[in-house]
Design a binder for these strands. Sequence first.
DNA 1: TTGAAAGCGCTAACAG
DNA 2: CTGTTAGCGCTTTCAA
Lengths: 341, 341
Amino acid sequence: MARRPTLKDVASEAGVHPATASRALNPETRHLVNDETAQRVHQVADSLGYQPNPIARSLKTARSASIGLIIPDLTNPLFPPIVRGIEDVLGGVGYNAWIINTDNDPARETAAVESLRNRSVEGLVFATARLHHPFIEQLAAGGTPTVLVNRRLAVSDVPSVTGDDAGGVAMAMRHLVDLGHRQIVHLAGPQDLSTGVNRLRAFRQALEDHGLENSPSRLKLCSAWAETAGAKAVTELLDDGVEFTAVLAGNDLLALGCYDALAERGLSCPGDVSVVGFNDMPFVDKLSPPLTTVRIPHYELGAEAAHLLLERLRAPDRTARSVLLPLTLVNRQSTAPPRRL
Amino acid sequence: MARRPTLKDVASEAGVHPATASRALNPETRHLVNDETAQRVHQVADSLGYQPNPIARSLKTARSASIGLIIPDLTNPLFPPIVRGIEDVLGGVGYNAWIINTDNDPARETAAVESLRNRSVEGLVFATARLHHPFIEQLAAGGTPTVLVNRRLAVSDVPSVTGDDAGGVAMAMRHLVDLGHRQIVHLAGPQDLSTGVNRLRAFRQALEDHGLENSPSRLKLCSAWAETAGAKAVTELLDDGVEFTAVLAGNDLLALGCYDALAERGLSCPGDVSVVGFNDMPFVDKLSPPLTTVRIPHYELGAEAAHLLLERLRAPDRTARSVLLPLTLVNRQSTAPPRRL
DNA sequence: TTGAAAGCGCTAACAG
DNA sequence: CTGTTAGCGCTTTCAA
């Protein structure tokens, strides 16, 4: 197999110095070279099938046209669309992403970031942010271009791209109230994540806005975004005799658990209890009943995060900006007017 | 921010030549150096927080401790487990993967592979293989270490890791026959993919094995692994008055379409028609009825593919070997004895 | 506008 | 066992 041509090959074939060939081939520096020469170099490069060696370039420039993407777990259906959004935008400008799964293990996170830095990644996108996340804060404070996606930090100027949870909850609650519901419970997600606390906060706000009683018994804190946690919460609610006609689940998995618990007690959805989820995961439209849920534009979240990061790379001194993407209520069959008044 | 220490820093701090430091730090060559010296070098490296620069190493060695992984689309729930299986195994030996989504576009595939080679990836894993796939065949013939996962080529010695479709279909068919079904239709997937043809072939074999009539009318070729294709196929079957009591769908998406078509015609599953899927995608246990399906161990497929590739990298001359992983039937509620005899 | 020269950080002959 | 030397392929001063 013939050795791949190098810049030197192109240069000698075109009768110029390698430095000139480099300048001619690099769009950034092409203007420094005689137009005619540049064209010749390009022709030779094409005919030889020359492809620059990104490794050599990285070594010299300490840049790599790549970024690191840190996610909890690729098999969680939330993340693939985010990843694709990021990759599609990056790909458009010749960048690539290294994807790391941390399984929410801080040790893996730090190790991964260390190894990414050795690879000279130019920036980092985290989908793993907890409300208090010293590691990320340090990194960002240390000047590493960093963007958060899907989740954000509690107080910080690290730019983030997230869904407008407050708006989403408000829509969901209005929907339930419009249907006639007055006794609504919330299955809140982990309170160390921005999504968990923001949705809970918005739930309380909505109760107030609609003049509904803010009864502590109508709130369940779930320690994980998991079906079992949702089922457990609803079972306890039922056992405690809490009255409710609707459930706002912190996410779709919790809503799924809710379905399970309801079914186990012989309660029908939406006949006895309406349920609203969050995320619009794949296939929740295939449940029975199809789940009414607040859709988060995950692909767009990723795309926007990539844009933000690229912008930071180009203009590091521009002030950080976070973006909130609008959510939409997907109205399916798991919500209906309450049976009892 | 202090410059990261280089090998030279470590060497001078330890009072040795950089080459010695290199040998001491690299496990492969550590035995070439005095034990005492090596220890000192390691200590200095630790205290300085030295991390080798993989880019410089790659440039020198033309190896990169990374491989390329070419998949159709990360948002298809089939692939994330495969990816994780691969990454987990590779990670264990210090390797990483570049993930590329092709969206089944051959042009993107060739472009991606080209760019991966520029990055000196040491091998390639394809999850995009079609039965006839000249590009992959050329690559493998050209000496690029290549492994296929999930799908394989028609005739070729390119090693692959796939599920045992024949065995899976046999199990599913036996299950249906044991329930009493005699009129079984197959929704076959795309016939340019090994999965599509292998399952169809196994279906025919099973008909023969069980002494069932091989009626052409009981077969529908679907042009895509998509819900709409499955729905269309079943609707046509019904319109044509074909008699059947069970459907073996080529995959879960096709089975989903089958559910839709059945529901639209007011037929119940499994009361009127039993349905078996393929893959055991996430959440098919939440459908109503929960889908009986043939489970493919996607994570293990990925892990095995990574092992195979690593082995090829270590011993390129060993003869290529393909592996077939056993499938299991997940018996849920979409199958039952036929109503009519 | 182009060439010369140096060097990014590392490893691999080769000598000693 | 260790040091010397050279160079992977590219970019970037600096000088002409």
